[in-house]
Amino acid sequence: MRAAVFRSPALIDIFRGVKRALGVLGAGVLAVALIVVPQPAFAADASYRTLSAARNPDWMGGLASGASLAALSIPGTHETLAIHGGDYVQAQENFGDSAATLTAQLNAGIRMIDIRARVNEGNTFTIHHGATYQVANFDDVLDKLAAFLAAHPGETVIMRLKQECTGETGSCVDASGQNSFPDIFDAYVAARPGLFWAPSVTRASAAAVPTLGAVRGKVVLAVLNGPRGGRFSNYGLAQFSGWNDGSSTYVQDEYNVPSVFSIPAKREAVSDFLATTNAGDPTKLYVNFASGAGAGAPPYWVAGGALWEQGVDPYVLDYLNDNTLSRTGVLMLDFPGGGLINKIISIN
């Protein structure tokens, strides 16, 4: 286990203030606080917060066109554009607004994205994580996808699109008087003919999992989710009819990680689903969320580790190095490192 430790500057300032206020006693309080308060345990490394160390803009181009997407090992990002809002909201490294962060991820090799949208005035989508606007709009997302796929036509990008706003505390509220979420989405699709793989964006019928050759240069919609889960029929892939808020047959999304002490359970959920994927139906696409958070565990603790607990990202890299898998399915990651992205791609 690595010994590198980094401390939150904000927390250190707090502890210094306590020390000044309490004098000699404060030194003891400070020492206890540094032991008791969970701190990020691991600095940036091959598994965590080093996305730019990977560069794989054309990795799908070398794969057989007849391969099903279900057969592939695919790195993805959870809350792909969650780069603002502080420790409990940010889930990805910040490479710029207006979806510039998406371009950085695509160039690194990310091929499944998780986009969360608020219904805004003018029947438009803005990108949110909860109440926090992520300084990007859905047009920015589609612009970046179109530009990337035009430059790298051998690739495909799988998208999960979710209506973000529930109206509850901590969430956002959709603008009133607008069209329905599916109607607005349809208008975006119609304005960009050829960008999406057509069978995945029709209300008439959901699609079977395609071959890579059928979707090169296209965006594949995996699922169109409502604000509390559930799929807007019949968008996306038919196998995800049961994709709700959390886990389902082909999705592991045990996102509730209440505290640092719950990180081992999240690691186990990810490794168990990797085993399920490896032994599962070869015609189905499995999506495994390595992300999680809770009141006592912000996303970066779960991803990178805290106190004595190994984070999910380094755990997954160790697991993949120690086990021989035929496929990983899609791994949806927070703050992925370049080495982890490279490892997932290498399994292909």
Rank of each mutant, 00 (worst) to 15 (best):
G62N: 05
T77R: 10
H84V: 02
T50A: 09
M60F: 11
G76N: 01
S47A: 13
S52A: 13
G61S: 12
F42T: 11
E93T: 09
S52C: 04
S52D: 15
A46S: 08
A33K: 06
A46N: 08
P38S: 10
A53M: 06
G96H: 03
D97E: 13
S68P: 07
H78V: 10
T50S: 13
A64Q: 13
S98T: 10
S47M: 00
R49W: 05
A31Q: 10
D45R: 01
S65D: 12
S47T: 03
A41C: 14
P75S: 09
A33G: 15
A43N: 05
F42R: 10
Y48L: 00
G61C: 02
I83T: 10
R49H: 10
Q39M: 13
P40H: 02
V29D: 01
L51R: 07
G62I: 01
G28L: 12
D97T: 09
G96S: 06
N94L: 07
L81Y: 07
A27W: 11
A91D: 11
L69C: 07
D97S: 14
A64G: 13
V89K: 01
S65G: 15
G28I: 03
I35D: 11
R55F: 08
Q39I: 08
S52G: 08
R49K: 13
W59P: 00
T77D: 03
P57F: 01
A99R: 07
Q92R: 00
A54S: 14
V36N: 08
Q90H: 04
H78D: 06
A46E: 12
Q39K: 09
T77Y: 03
A71N: 12
A64N: 07
H84E: 09
M60T: 07
L72G: 04
P57A: 05
T50F: 06
S47L: 06
I74L: 06
E79P: 03
G76I: 06
I74W: 02
V89M: 00
P75D: 05
L30A: 12
A53N: 12
F95Q: 07
E79W: 04
N56I: 02
G86S: 05
S47P: 04
V36T: 14
A64D: 13
I35K: 14
N56H: 12
G76V: 01
A53Y: 06
D45M: 02
V37K: 04
D58Q: 08
R55L: 07
V29W: 00
S47H: 01
G76Y: 00
T77L: 01
S98K: 14
Y48F: 14
N56Q: 06
A91W: 00
E93V: 11
A53L: 14
R55A: 12
D58K: 04
A41N: 14
A33E: 11
V32A: 14
A91R: 12
V32Q: 08
Y88G: 05
G86W: 02
I35E: 15
V89T: 06
A33I: 09
R55S: 12
L51V: 07
I35R: 14
V37Y: 11
H78L: 08
Y48G: 04
A99D: 01
L51Y: 08
L63D: 09
G66E: 13
